[in-house]
């Protein structure tokens, strides 16, 4: 996954914040996905286009985590979002 591409939400997804965390519905598939706190933070950022590097900077600042560990988790999370068509790359 390239660090240069900008990621943003697939605009067809419906999001509701429940108890401070995002629950996403894919209306095409009729499927619902709940995100944890960090996932919800990233999903909120993806309301506008962000590069992987931007996302990583903001996650490290927000959650006070090491860059290397966060980078691997972010890579994995973005791959999941892409596999479910929840995000698009610009």
């Amino acid at each position: 996954m390239t660090d240069l591409a900008d990621f943003c939400r697939n605009s067809t997804m419906i999001t509701r914040v429940i108890d401070g965390e995002a629950v996403i519905m894919d209306p095409q598939q009729g499927k619902v996905l709940a995100l944890n706190e960090v996932g919800s933070f990233i999903w909120e950022l993806l309301d506008s286009p962000h590069s992987q590097g931007d996302l990583l900077d903001k996650i490290c600042r927000e959650f006070n985590v090491g860059r290397e560990e966060a980078a691997a988790d972010l890579e994995e999370f973005l791959a999941v979002l892409k596999s479910k068509d929840l995000v698009v790359t610009a």
Binding site: I18, V23, V32
Partner: peptide, 27 residues
């Protein structure tokens, strides 16, 4: 509530699956 939404969605009576407009509204 985040767990409850998964439990309650199947309890909503609706005659058709995957009708985008209604799925959005029901959710």
């Amino acid at each position: 509530p985040k767990e409850a939404i998964f439990a309650i969605l199947p309890m909503v009576f609706f005659p058709i699956n995957k009708t985008q407009l209604f799925e959005n509204k029901i959710f």
